[in-house]
Design a protein around this nucleic acid. Structure first.
Lengths: 202, 202
DNA sequence: CGTCCGCCATACGCCGGAGTATGGAAAATT
DNA sequence: AATTTTCCATACTCCGGCGTATGGCGGACG
């Protein structure tokens, strides 16, 4: 039980035969590595050591697979948000954990990063919109809990989320300091210091 | 001379026959609209009302076109940066103009946005790296001019540039307030207020 | 005025992925 | 044990973009 509850996104079924969920998980791994446009049926099948004969038994086509995979990922991400809200009662710690958690949950973030790169895609866009809204809502309410007025909190949430998105972008460009370096830590401290106030003066 | 120096990126040559530069400009327009992966030879030719017979006379292949187009764009962007540095002497105004100039220079920003989405592409990546470094350097030195210590200035520059990149991302997702709305203005004011100090206390 | 060269059209072969059809093997079911 | 169901392999066709080859046309130039 201790080894399995960590990731509901990638628990492999040990059956000899594949199920739809196996394809969805493999699809997400491929997206994380090479991006959404690289999600093609035949290459994915080769990667799994199988042929597309299997694929078209489980899915009606490429669109369907992407749809299911995205839904799976989005649900996983929503649960993560809720968990963070349940575990960390102090709103300020919750905000800080938002930054510190980059680098953790590696696969999930890599997928999200690639989804961002594929904004504009008809199936991806609505997912991105919902996820961003949920996360910004999460941040905004944390600021409100700290005593920040509603409108100010919303702007601050958008600002912080932009910083997060920009960080992902710089990461894709390999323009980010090594995640386990001193420079990285001081930068994160800098961000937290300038964007997350210690207390709100009313 | 006054009407031509505005955009060196799209001045059409009025010749009856096409030259390489015409293809590069058309390529950049296509990238701005549909992204780098949509840059294909035949579709681009159709769009220009011509056939690829012309293309392969001017270029050795798709790679070559992308290379030239990217170079053209990068040079244009560099000149823009230098111009901003020459025209605005007050460092704080220079920083503010950085944000206000989003929405202006529409084509250039649209291209950049799509290039960001195509990070990971072998030909695009080095361009992104150089451009981001130049711009962050530009921001960093402005902060230093304001009296900020060097290391702090670099972190602040990275932070601001992340905000900018995140804004572009939200724009791709249509998650940004309308550029000519009141909400937009108050948000920009909020960003400037929290990230660009009025004076530095030494 | 004829020739040559710059620019473009047409027609081809190649490749890789999408989707379909059909058959086979293993597992489940009765 | 016989049969059905599940899952996968193989072998096609179709399509769209890439790159090439070759031919044509108009303008420059001798």
């Amino acid at each position: 039980m201790s080894s399995k509850s960590a990731s509901t996104l990638l628990d492999k079924s040990e059956r000899s035969t594949l199920c739809a969920a196996d394809w969805e998980r493999a699809a997400l791994e491929l997206i994380a590595e090479k991006g959404v446009p690289a999600l093609a049926v035949e290459p994915l099948a080769r990667r799994m050591g199988i042929t597309k004969g299997s694929f078209y038994w489980h899915f009606s086509g490429r669109e369907s697979l992407l749809e299911q995979a995205l839904q799976r990922w989005e649900e996983h991400d929503s649960r993560n948000l809720a968990k963070s809200l349940g575990e960390i009662s102090n709103p300020r710690d919750r905000l800080i954990s938002f930054f510190r958690r980059v680098g953790k949950e590696k696969l999930t973030h890599e997928v999200y990063s690639e989804l961002c790169a594929a904004a504009g895609h008809a199936q991806v866009e609505p997912v991105l919109e919902r996820v961003a809204n949920r996360r910004m809502e999460h941040l905004s309410s944390a600021f409100e809990e700290m005593g920040m007025p509603s409108l100010h909190a919303r702007n601050q949430a958008r600002l912080i989320y932009s910083v997060y998105l920009g960080f992902l972008q710089l990461q894709r460009q390999h323009q980010t300091p090594n995640l386990s370096s001193e420079e990285y830590d001081t930068y994160i401290d800098h961000v937290i210091e300038t964007l997350i106030p210690h207390e709100i003066q009313v």
